[in-house]
Amino acid sequence: MLRKILAVDDSALIHQMYKLFLSRYKNCKLISAMNGLEALDKLAQEEGIDLILLDINMPVMNGLEFLQRLQKESAYQAIPVIIISTEGKEEDTIRGLKMGAKGYVKKPFQASELHGLIEKITAAG
């Protein structure tokens, strides 16, 4: 039961697409952050975030740094993270996975692909 999803990406377009893609999850609140720092703020403000969709390439604080900070907080460690990857940045994706992200999906992706991954990851607990 997804109640809150935190999407972290520096592009407003991607956030709009998340809004569309994730509309199928009724009663689920979608929270957006434009970079890692903002994401940390949102985590502190909003309780009960069930899933994080994470872009790597962002200004101010990138995804990997954010992940590292995330791992340090016991409260946030358990939140599943899906890395939103791009071509040419496979190294970063792998590092993110090693840092504890549960999965990834490459841009450009279809909504169904994202849904499939989310379901697998959240079902797994």
């Binding site: 390439n57 090693k98 840092m99 504890g100």
Partner: peptide, 27 residues
Amino acid sequence: SLTPSVPSADQSLAVSAPSAEYISAHS
């Protein structure tokens, strides 16, 4: 271990170098 062993967390996590114009664009 899940953390990279390459020296200095900051540098190794530098994916995109911060640039003034790019940073100020959002937030």
